[in-house]
Design a protein around this nucleic acid. Structure first.
Length: 264
DNA sequence: ATTGCTTCCTGAGCGC
DNA sequence: TGCGCTCAGGAAGCAA
């Protein structure tokens, strides 16, 4: 499940591998994976940069094309010379030097959109601030959360509130903050809001330095696993460090884990 | 405006 | 061995 730290790791890996390469072809191996939203179709150009916004990965080229990729749950980008290593090939980006960027995705939810540069801003305008930037702060979050009846867990998963958090990290952040995922968002105190922001930064930064979390499918571009799964404190666990049983519940269709002793 | 349910999809894991 | 079932979940779309 690539969330912000995993996408960030992939972006950093890709930058080293494909910056400067000329894209000759983008091939779809499954309908619905790629959508072309350019005003004119034609060449793609040479890669000038790779960026991330939330869980979206953006590839920019020198002829003002942006390729926006969302990996959803099982999407992977694999850099190689052949497609042989791909079990679930959905698309590929071919370069003039005969290397490839393979888009492999078991569950086929991932998407690639080819668009004119600048259009990405409109596409992504719904996203909330980046959790590691200063505009994700107490003032912002308390305004957004004010009067909300939904559980804090659901609010933090909402990409319009803050961009890039997914199930695993929200579960870990709330555990570190000592806040139950079932708490009503609008009733959180100032202190708790600050704690959420602080722990969000802490967890994400640790996860990025671990190259992400590999539970099942996630791999970086060079096919390496992340390491942060070794530091998870509640997600997928049965017992908390304090000795109490971890509770497992469903919220908004996703599994929440929390310690009733440490999280109030 | 907000909330919550359903949908998309495949593979792993389980009980029988 | 193999069948059928449940579960995993990000985000869009829709209904209340």
């Amino acid at each position: 499940m690539p969330e912000l730290p995993e996408v960030e790791t992939i972006v950093r890996g890709l930058r080293k591998l494909v910056t400067g390469k000329e894209i000759t072809e983008i091939i779809s191996h499954r309908s619905g994976t790629i959508s072309e939203e350019r005003s004119e179709t034609g060449e793609y150009g040479r890669i000038t940069g790779i960026r991330r916004r939330g869980k979206y990965l953006l590839i920019d080229t020198d002829i003002q094309i942006t390729i926006m990729i969302h990996l959803r749950m099982t999407g992977k980008l694999i850099f190689d010379k052949t497609e042989a290593g791909s079990q679930h090939l959905r698309a590929e980006i071919r370069f003039s030097d005969k290397t490839l960027l393979i888009f492999d995705d078991v569950r086929t939810f991932g998407k690639i959109i080819v668009m004119d540069s600048g259009k990405d801003v409109e596409h992504l305008s719904f996203l909330g601030p980046e959790p590691l930037e200063t505009d994700f702060n107490e003032h912002y979050l308390s305004e957004k959360i004010k009067g909300r009846k939904a559980p804090v867990k659901n609010i933090l998963l909402d990409q319009r509130i803050v961009a890039g958090l997914g199930n695993i990290y929200v579960v870990e952040i709330l555990h570190r903050a000592g806040i139950s995922p079932e708490r009503e968002g609008g009733l959180l105190t100032r202190k708790e809001i600050n704690l959420i922001i602080e722990k969000t930064r802490e967890v994400l930064q640790e996860a990025i330095s671990c190259n992400g979390t590999t539970i099942s499918d996630y791999r970086s571009v060079d096919d390496k696993s992340g390491e942060f799964q070794n530091f998870l404190r509640v997600y997928g666990k049965e017992k908390c460090k304090c000795g109490a049983e971890i509770k497992k519940i469903k919220q908004a269709g996703r599994t929440s884990y929390f310690c009733p002793n440490c999280q109030k």
